[in-house]
Measured scan of single mutants.
Amino acid sequence: KKVLATKVLGTVKWFNVRNGYGFINRNDTKEDVFVHQTAIKKNNPRKYLRSVGDGETVEFDVVEGEKGAEAANVTGPDGVPVEGSR
């Protein structure tokens, strides 16, 4: 997949743990970017399912997906594990 941007910060708009996807709002362009649970690189080690929490700040790369921009290599800021869904 073509990389459109790297090390982008954003805020998780919503994430559905059961369906394994959601959207992140980019801090720079204010665009919403699709995020799938497989894109989460560093999950909260205390959680079994990969997820990001609503309102959580995350860092990610933006790649060209089949339906437009999507997140890849999702971590917390500066590469720490994500907090995950509460």
Rank of each mutant, 00 (worst) to 15 (best):
Thr38Cys: 07
Val17Asp: 10
Gly68His: 06
Leu49Arg: 15
Ile40Lys: 02
Glu66Gln: 12
Ala71Glu: 01
Val33Lys: 03
Gly22Thr: 02
Pro81Tyr: 11
Ala71Gly: 02
Thr6Ile: 07
Pro77Lys: 13
Gly79Pro: 12
Glu66Asp: 11
Ser51Met: 10
Asn44Gln: 12
Lys41Asp: 09
Pro81Ala: 11
Thr11Gly: 02
Ser51Asp: 10
Val8Tyr: 00
Ala72His: 09
Tyr21Glu: 06
Val12Asn: 01
Asn27Lys: 08
Gly76Ala: 15
Leu49Val: 14
Gly79Ile: 11
Leu4Val: 09
Phe60Gly: 03
Gly22Pro: 02
Thr57Gly: 03
Pro77Tyr: 15
Gly22Leu: 00
Ala5Cys: 08
Phe23Tyr: 08
Glu64Pro: 00
Lys41Val: 14
Gly53Met: 13
Val33Tyr: 00
Lys1Cys: 01
Arg46Glu: 12
Trp14Pro: 06
Lys2Thr: 06
Lys42Asn: 14
Thr6Ser: 10
Val58Gln: 03
Val63Cys: 05
Val52Met: 10
Asn73Ile: 02
Pro81Met: 12
Gly84Gln: 12
Gly65Thr: 09
Leu9Gly: 07
Asn43Ser: 14
Ser85Cys: 13
Val8Pro: 03
Arg86Lys: 14
Lys67Pro: 03
Phe34Cys: 05
Glu83Val: 14
Glu59Cys: 12
Val80Gly: 14
Val3Tyr: 07
Thr38Tyr: 05
Lys13Asn: 04
Phe23Val: 09
Ala71His: 00
Val74Gln: 01
Gly79Leu: 11
Phe60Asp: 05
Glu56Gly: 08
Phe15Ala: 05
Asn44Ile: 10
Ala71Lys: 00
Glu31Gly: 03
Asn44Pro: 09
Arg50Gly: 09
Phe23Thr: 05
Lys41Phe: 08
Ile40Val: 07
Gly55Pro: 04
Lys30Pro: 00
Val74Lys: 04
Val8His: 01
Thr29Asp: 04
Phe15Tyr: 11
Phe34Tyr: 08
Asp28Asn: 04
Arg46Asp: 14
Asp32Lys: 00
Gly55Arg: 06
Glu70Leu: 06
Lys42Met: 14
Gly10Val: 00
Glu64Ile: 13
Asn43Met: 12
Glu64His: 09
Gly53Lys: 15
Gly55Glu: 05
Gly55Ile: 02
Ser51His: 10
Leu4Gln: 06
Val82Ile: 12
His36Arg: 08
Gly68Gln: 03
Thr57Pro: 08
Val52Cys: 07
Val58Pro: 01
Glu64Met: 14
Glu64Cys: 09
Asn27Pro: 02
Thr57Ile: 15
Trp14His: 06
Lys30Cys: 09
Tyr48Leu: 13
Gln37Asn: 09
Val74Cys: 00
Lys1Glu: 05
Gly76Glu: 15
Gly10Asp: 04
Thr29Arg: 00
Asp61Gln: 07
Lys47Cys: 14
Val35Met: 10
Thr57Ala: 09
Pro45Ala: 13
Gly65Arg: 01
Gly76Val: 15
Val74Tyr: 04
Val52Tyr: 07
Lys67Ala: 08
Trp14Tyr: 05
Ala69Gln: 13
Gln37Pro: 01
Trp14Glu: 07
Phe15Asp: 04
Ser85Ala: 14
Gly68Leu: 01
Asn16Asp: 11
Val12Met: 06
Glu59Ser: 11
Leu4Ala: 01
Gln37His: 15
Ala5Pro: 03
Asp28Ile: 00
Lys13Ser: 06
Ser51Ile: 13
Ile40Pro: 02
Lys30Met: 08
Ala72Trp: 12
Ala69Glu: 09
Asn73Glu: 05
Gly76Gln: 14
Arg26Met: 03
Gly84Cys: 11
Asp28Val: 00
Phe23Glu: 06
Leu9Ile: 12
Val12Ile: 09
Arg26Asn: 02
Thr38Gly: 08
Val3Ala: 04
Leu9Ala: 12
Ala69Arg: 11
Val52Phe: 13
Asn25Thr: 15
Gly76Asn: 10
Thr38Pro: 03
Asn44Gly: 15
Val35Ile: 09
Thr29Met: 01
Ile40His: 03
Gly20Ala: 05
Asp32Glu: 06
Lys47Arg: 13
Arg18Ile: 08
Asn16Val: 02
Gly65His: 08
Arg86Ile: 10
Gly20Val: 06
Lys1Thr: 04
Glu83Asn: 12
Val63Trp: 04
Val17Asn: 10
Val3Trp: 05
Glu59Asn: 03
Glu83Ala: 14
Asp54Trp: 11
Val80Lys: 14
Lys47Ser: 14
Arg46Tyr: 11
Glu59Met: 15
Val8Trp: 02
Gln37Lys: 15
Val17Phe: 09
Val33Glu: 04
Phe34Trp: 07
Glu64Thr: 06
Leu9Val: 13
Lys47Gly: 13
Phe60Leu: 05
Arg46His: 11
Val12Thr: 03
Ala5Phe: 07
Asn73Gly: 04
Gly10Pro: 01
Gly84Ile: 10
Leu49Glu: 13
Val74Asn: 04
Glu56Ala: 12
Asn16Cys: 08
Glu66Arg: 14
Asn27Glu: 08
Glu70Arg: 10
Val62Ser: 02
Lys41Cys: 09
Glu83His: 10
Gly68Ser: 04
Val58Gly: 01
Leu49Trp: 13
Asn73Arg: 05
Phe23His: 04
Ala69Cys: 12
Ser85Glu: 11
Ile24Tyr: 00
Val58Ile: 07
Lys41Glu: 09
Phe15Arg: 00
Asp78Arg: 13
Lys47His: 15
Lys2Gln: 07
Val82Gly: 10
Lys1Met: 07
Lys67Cys: 08
Ile24Ala: 02
Val17His: 12
Asp78Gln: 11
Lys47Met: 11
Gln37Thr: 11
Asp61Gly: 04
Lys2Met: 03
Leu9Pro: 07
Ile24Thr: 02
Lys2Pro: 06
Phe34Gly: 05
Asn73Asp: 07
Lys7Val: 01
His36Gly: 05
Phe60Lys: 02
Pro77Ile: 15
Thr29Trp: 00
Thr6Val: 10
Val33His: 04
Val63Phe: 04
Asn25Ala: 07
Gly53Arg: 15
Asp54Tyr: 11
Phe34Thr: 05
Arg46Pro: 11
Asp32Ala: 02
Gly84Ala: 13
Glu31Gln: 09
Lys42Val: 15
Val58Ala: 02
Gly22Glu: 01
Gly10Met: 00
Arg26Pro: 02
Val52Gly: 06
Pro77Ser: 09
Ala39Glu: 08
Lys47Asn: 13
Lys47Val: 10
Thr6Glu: 12
Gln37Glu: 12
Val63His: 02
Ala72Leu: 08
Ala72Lys: 10
Lys47Glu: 14
Ile24Gln: 03
Val17Ala: 13
Val52His: 07
Gly79Trp: 09
Ala72Asn: 07
Gly65Ile: 01
Leu49Lys: 15
Phe34Asn: 03
Gly10Tyr: 00
Asp61Ala: 02
Ser51Pro: 10
Arg26Cys: 03
Lys7Gln: 08
Lys41His: 09
Arg50Ser: 11
Asp32Cys: 02
Ile24Leu: 10
Val3Leu: 08
Ala69Ile: 15
Phe15Ile: 00
Pro45Gly: 14
Glu59Leu: 15
Glu59Tyr: 09
Ser51Tyr: 13
Asn25Leu: 08
Asn27Ser: 09
Ala72Ile: 14
Lys47Ala: 13
Ala71Arg: 00
Glu31Val: 05
Gly22Val: 01
Glu70Asp: 02
Phe60Arg: 02
Ser51Ala: 13
Asn19Phe: 15
Asn25Ser: 11
Gly20His: 15
Asp54Thr: 15
Thr75Pro: 01
Lys67Ser: 08
Asn73Met: 00
Tyr21Ser: 04
Leu4Cys: 03
Glu59Trp: 07
Asn44Leu: 11
Gly55Thr: 04
Pro45Ile: 10
Lys13Asp: 02
Thr6Asn: 08
Val80Gln: 14
Asn73Tyr: 05
Pro45Asn: 13
Lys67Thr: 06
Gly79Ala: 11
Glu59His: 04
Lys30Leu: 09
Val82Arg: 10
Glu70Asn: 05
Arg26His: 02
Ile24Asn: 01
Ile40Phe: 14
Thr38Phe: 05
Lys13Leu: 06
Val17Pro: 12
Ala71Leu: 00
Leu4Pro: 03
Lys7Glu: 05
Thr38Ile: 04
Asp28Gly: 02
Val80Met: 14
Leu49Ser: 14
Lys41Asn: 09
Val8Gly: 02
Glu56Val: 13
Gly55Cys: 06
Val33Ile: 12
Arg86Asp: 13
Ala39Leu: 01
Pro81Gln: 13
His36Glu: 07
Thr29Cys: 01
Val8Cys: 07
Gln37Gly: 09
Asp32Trp: 00
Arg46Gly: 14
Thr11Gln: 08
Val12Phe: 09
Asp78Val: 13
Glu70Lys: 08
Val52Ile: 15
Gly68Thr: 07
Asp78Trp: 09
Thr11Glu: 07
Gly55Met: 06
Gly76Met: 15
Glu59Thr: 13
Pro81Ile: 10
Phe34Arg: 04
Thr6Ala: 08
Gln37Met: 11
Asn16Thr: 03
Lys42Ile: 15
Ser51Thr: 13
Val62Met: 05
Phe15Gly: 00
Val3Arg: 05
Arg18Gln: 10
Val74Ala: 02
Asn25Arg: 14
His36Leu: 02
Thr29Gly: 02
Phe34Asp: 05
Leu4Ile: 13
Glu56Thr: 11
Val52Glu: 06
Gly76Thr: 14
Ala5His: 07
Asn19His: 11
Tyr21Ala: 04
Leu49Ala: 13
Val80Pro: 11
Gly20Asp: 04
Glu83Gln: 15
Val62Asp: 03
Glu64Trp: 11
Gly53Trp: 11
Asn19Tyr: 10
Pro77Gln: 09
Lys42Leu: 14
